[in-house]
């Protein structure tokens, strides 16, 4: 039994559901969990967190003022919090923000760091992540001041473990050097599910043919509460934005269900979605390589199959 820290990603006053798998990983065989939040009041998150075995939630702030626009100050404050609460291992969600903060903490201290991990063994001090874009898996042993590990969203199945929870605030003695500040956050596609945290993803490849045709994928994804992705070719052809790209040079995703429509199944695309729980392929070419590495396949024209699937889901 050890005391493990988990950095929680919040969305206003709620805990993003993608954190629950990270909490499950941190709990292991019964570790004591301290959750850290960087915005809002700790009590606001108590109910969400106690269901997953968090015994203490700590709202971290700094005595150098508001740090919401200063990631280096957030990282320094978290380092101070680790020391204060005697925590030597911190897990986080491997989102853009989670990866960024853990990397800043690792660089500022002398700590081993694993990002985008698909497994962790806190007793052994190891984590597992992909090398070569999912073609291989590497086990890394981390050492140094802190054990820092960010877990790929959906990589670890969440299980509940209700317990009692306490909330408190911690003000870190940390200062910012003023060299980096977030000026604004631009929203281009408001309200869309973050691809890497979606449970279901429906992706379109080159045969989708145009930006407008993506609407049939959106309708299908909406029927399952999912998000829409795109292949590299679809993005490079201007059918979709880069934020929607799944694959080696796009997003790495690990949903419960991945439906590839008109995808050939390139190595680089699989690099981005190989750890999905279930992969479905829809393609009119029966010889497409994707059919040799999926779970369920339908040979057919995506413009017929996808709307039929949407209709079947709504039945």
């Amino acid at each position: 039994m050890a005391r493990i820290g988990v950095l929680i990603e919040t969305n206003e006053n709620s805990v993003k559901p993608a954190n629950f798998g990270v909490l499950t990983a941190a709990r292991g065989a019964g570790n004591e969990i301290c959750a850290f939040v960087l915005e809002g009041d700790a009590t606001a998150f108590q109910d969400d967190l106690k269901t997953y075995g968090v015994s203490k939630v700590i709202a971290v702030g700094s005595n150098d003022g508001d740090f919401s626009k200063k990631p280096d100050l957030q990282a320094a404050s978290l380092v101070a919090a680790m020391k204060n609460f005697e925590i030597t291992a911190l897990l986080a969600l491997s989102s853009s923000r989670g990866k960024d903060l853990l990397a800043r903490m690792a660089a500022a201290t002398n700590s081993g760091l694993g990002l985008d991990c698909i497994g962790v063994d806190l007793e052994a001090g190891t984590c597992v992540k992909t090398y070569f874009a999912g073609k291989t898996e590497a086990t890394l042993k981390l050492s140094g001041d802190l054990f820092l590990c960010a877990i790929r969203p959906n990589a670890i199945e969440e299980t509940e473990a209700p317990c009692d929870i306490a909330a408190e605030a911690f003000t870190a003695d940390a200062a910012d050097d003023g060299k980096l500040v977030i000026k604004e956050v631009k929203t281009s596609d408001s309200g869309k599910v973050d691809l890497s945290e979606a449970n279901v993803i429906v992706t379109g490849g080159r045969p989708i043919g145009s930006k407008d045709n993506f609407s049939i994928l959106e309708e299908c994804a909406n029927a399952m509460g999912g998000a829409v992705g795109a292949s590299r070719v679809a993005v490079d052809s201007g059918f979709a934005s880069h934020a929607m790209q799944v694959g080696q040079t796009g997003k790495i995703v690990s949903p419960k269900l991945y439906i590839g429509c008109g995808l050939s199944g390139s190595v680089q695309h699989f690099a981005g979605m190989k750890t999905s729980k279930v992969i479905v392929a829809i393609n009119n070419d029966k010889d497409a390589p994707i059919f040799t590495k999926c779970d369920y396949g339908i040979v057919g024209d995506l413009f017929e199959v996808v709307p039929a699937l949407t209709a079947a889901l709504k039945k």
Partner: peptide
């Protein structure tokens, strides 16, 4: 940063 958002 995901979800269609960009940090400046």
């Amino acid at each position: 940063i995901g979800g269609g958002e960009r940090e400046v």
